[in-house]
């Protein structure tokens, strides 16, 4: 593989890795730098114990019942 092709491949890889933060429109969100935030999911709710603190729990951390996820 020629040096030019190697450098081009490395540049493409770098561009792919950096794309999420340099893509046009990334600075229009709500984060500290205007970036989009990871959307918090609604709190899981246990029928017996109510809302649970763990955002992605499938089971209640108190009684073990399914949270319906």
């Amino acid at each position: 593989m020629t040096p030019v092709a190697t450098i081009a491949g490395a540049a493409l890889l770098l561009a792919w890795v950096l794309w999420p933060i340099v893509r046009p429109g990334n600075g229009t969100g709500r984060g500290p730098l205007g970036a989009a935030l990871i959307e918090p999911q609604p709190a899981p709710t246990c029928e017996q114990c109510g809302p649970r603190p763990e955002s992605d729990a499938r089971y209640c951390s108190n009684c073990g019942t399914s949270t319906g996820r």
């Binding site: 730098l33 970036a35 989009a36 935030l37």
Partner: peptide, 8 residues
């Protein structure tokens, strides 16, 4: 909690 940082 920035989604772009998570993706990169």
């Amino acid at each position: 909690s920035r989604a772009d940082l998570a993706a990169t």
